[in-house]
Every structure is written in C-alpha cells, then in structure tokens.
Design a protein around this nucleic acid. Structure first.
Lengths: 226, 226
DNA sequence: CAGCGCTTGTGACCGCGTGCACAAGCGCGG
DNA sequence: CCGCGCTTGTGCACGCGGTCACAAGCGCTG
C-alpha cells in the first residue's frame, strides 16, 4: 500500500467534501429560482428547495466567499455564476461512455446527461459486433482505440457501464490514457490511483440498503400516514 | 442522508448507517469468495475485496455479532448467511418501476437488478401511449392503477425513473399506496414523510462533483458514496 | 440620522465515524 | 500440555460535519 502523499501545496480555499456534494443541489435550486426572475434568495428559501437546512446552506456558501448581503439574502444571478464557476460548469467537459449494454445506451440517449457542460464525445465497447453501430449521433468504437480517442477529443470524464468483470480493465485503460475522473456504474469495486477521482453509482447496493431498512422497519401499530 | 428517527424505543442491536452502507460490499465480496469454495476469510482479505480497510471490516461485522474465530477468520458460508439475513436478502422484494423512458426501460431490462431477492413486478407510466406496451415480460400499466397494484402485488420498493417534474407526484402516490422504500433517479429533490426511506441516484450531481474535482485538480479520497 | 427588523456569517459544541494499537483468544506444533 | 503465531474484537483518541445561537451588518423608515 503506497503511503499517502503529504499536501505540499496548502490550498487557500479548500471546500469540504460534504459541501461539494451539496453544491449541485444548490445549483439546481438556483436555476429554478432564476427562471422565475427572482432577484434575491434567502438561505431559508434555498434550503427549502435543496432539501437541506438553512444553517448548512449558509455555511456551505460561506466557503465559496461572502456573496450574501445581510438583511437581504443572496443575489440569485451572481450566486448562480459563482456556484457554476466553482463546479466547473462554465467549461465544456468531454465525456466517454464505456460499455453499451442497456444501461450504456440509456445513458447515451439520456438528455439531462449532457444538459450543462457535459458532452458525450465517444462510445466505446469491447464487443466487435457492437462496434460500428450508431447510437444517437455517435458510432460505437473499439476499446483498442480508447487511448487515441481520449487524446484527440480531450476526454475528461469516463463513464463505465460495462459488466462487472470488465470494469477494472476498462478503468485501467482510462487511467493509462490520462482520464482523471471516472464514474463507475458497474457493480464491482474498482481501484484507481489516488490522483484519479472515482465515484460510483451502484443499483444493487442501493436496493440492498433499502431492503435493510425495510426489513428493520419498526412495526409501529397504525401510525397515521401523512 | 436520511435523518435518524428518535430512539423512543431503544433498539437492541442498532447498526450504524455507515456500516449498513458497506454491508452490500461485503456481501458481494463474500459471494465471490464462496464461489471459489474457500472455507474461511480474514478481515484483511475481505477488506481487499471490498475496497475498505481491515479495521473497518472487523468493526462492521462485530455489529452483526461475533461471527469470527480469532486466529482463523470468518466462516464464509456462515457469514454470507448472516449478512444476507441482515440485509433482508433471504426474502423476496417486489419492485415497481415508475416511468419508462430510456432509463426506466434500461432498469427493467437490467439483469443484475433482480439478481438477488429483488423482483420487478410492475411497470407504470403516466403516458397513455406507453400503457399497454410490453417491456420484457411485463406490460406497462397506467399510474392510476398504482394503488391497487401495490396492494395486490405487495410492492415494497418503488423506483422512480420519471422526468424531474413528475417525480414528487409519483412519490406521493407511492407513499399514499403504502410503499415505504423509494429509490429516486429523477434529478430533483423529493420529499417524503420520515417513516419512508428514500435514497437517490443522481447522474447530474455525480458528474458535477467530478467536474469540481477535475477543475480543482486536487486528489480526493476515494470515498464510497453509498 | 437613529432605530429597528431581517438575514448573513461564524464561533462553539457535540456526536458519529475512522483508524490505531493492543489485549483476548483460538488452533497448531513440538 | 505448553508456548507461539495469527486474527479477531474493541477501547481510545481524533477529526469532520452538523446544529445552534448570536453577533455583525445591511437597508428601510420615520
């Protein structure tokens, strides 16, 4: 096990991981508010829309800087700008989808996917029968071409939608090609070097967690349902 | 993160939320080990396969009871039994999928979905044009029939795969029908009463988090977001 | 221009989760 | 039957994140 690297460059503003995970919620809430031509928003209102509490909103936003006005609230337009800048949504992120089974195809066709900043630029599969097929505007390409695809199209994010047994090999190829951000849908543990950011979305895991709580649900007799 | 219910009745064995979230990982690892006819497994080996550290494995498993043997390890077969019992995987959980766009159809066809214990028993959509269509072995039914479907087929888990604007209404219908476990794929905040367990899987959010770290070029601990 | 109401920003506290390190305990070999 | 090596189970300390509550500060009004 490699020893953890020391943070030699102390970051001026480092934003807590928990806060980063909530920024997208605020972003979405802010877009809705902006659509309604509302000038300012309070932490209370934003909390309501994002499904968190107001103190958290204030503390989270304070990490980005002091963009609020006491007694008034936050300027919606300005805050949208700050949050989207912080999240990197002012740039364009080329995305590659790896594995085009049911899930991969659904992702490729998912409109909300490429909504803001994310653009699918490549579809890759190891199956020779799938290579050459068209999915939406793109054509499925062979996994052997991954390296040059990543380099030429500046792929920043790889989305793994392969069967579990293929996931680690695909991740290794992505890392070797220089992709530093990976979203894994395959139901298996994928190991990447520490400089690569890996997030996972796991259906089976989510269902099993639900199953746990469902089973352990306390049997409160006839509690009124809301 | 779902808020914990007030402990008015002190639960004998209450398992930390973080542990519950890791049990599926152990379960999957244990199944792989069991396939290789290995009798016992150490916390170290299990940790390797589950992508966590050994101390955590031991502490997590200790919450289920003392099923290990010092100097030896854990009996694989026995542990599989205990974990699957704890996760409620010895039962059958009827699942309904709400909304059959790209994602809903992919979920309906996803093999790994119904792998263990989870059985899709209903597909529901609000669009009259989709009602009656066949997807796999099932036929899409109207959302108006949801209540009776849930009652008759004992639906325990609802999977929301509708567009964002429809999600809250569908969730309300599910709750009203008595479904206490909901998995939300729609990119929006859904509010449910506290006795209902809600988990969410959000593509856009995940991508935006990746985008943040990509832009800030800083290594982030490979933490499981489960 | 002073006072008042409203909302932000943050200091302080607290509880959960994590990791370390070690004692407890099991089995095996001599 | 005793000692040794291996692995579990856990006490402890620490840090992150969440919540509360309040001081600071802005704008409006009289």
């Amino acid at each position: 096990m490699p020893r953890r690297e020391e943070p030699d460059i102390p970051e001026a503003r480092l934003i807590p991981e928990a806060t980063v995970a909530r920024l997208p919620l605020y972003y979405r809430a802010l877009l809705e508010i902006a659509d309604q031509s509302i000038g300012t928003v309070s932490s209370e209102q934003l909390a309501e829309l994002a499904g968190v509490n107001a103190a958290k909103v204030r503390k989270d936003l304070s990490h980005l800087g002091s963009y609020g006005t006491r007694g008034v609230g936050y300027d919606v337009e300005h805050l949208v700008g700050e949050v989207s800048r912080e999240l990197g949504l002012t740039r364009d992120w080329p995305v590659a989808i790896l594995g085009l089974g049911n899930l991969g195809r659904a992702l490729a066709n998912y409109r909300g996917f490429g909504a803001r900043g994310f653009r699918i630029v490549a579809l890759v599969d190891a199956d020779p029968d799938k290579v050459g097929q068209a999915v939406g505007d793109l054509t499925i390409e062979p996994v052997e071409a991954l390296s040059s695809i990543v380099a030429q199209r500046r792929v920043a994010i790889g989305v793994i939608a392969t069967p579990a047994p293929a996931a680690q090999a695909v991740a290794d190829r992505l890392v070797a090609a220089g992709v530093a951000s990976i979203l894994n849908f395959a139901p298996t543990v994928v190991v990447v070097p520490p400089e690569v950011t890996l997030r996972k979305v796991d259906l089976a895991t989510e269902l099993q967690i639900l199953s746990f709580y469902q089973q352990h649900r306390r049997r409160v007799p006839d509690r009124a349902r809301v």
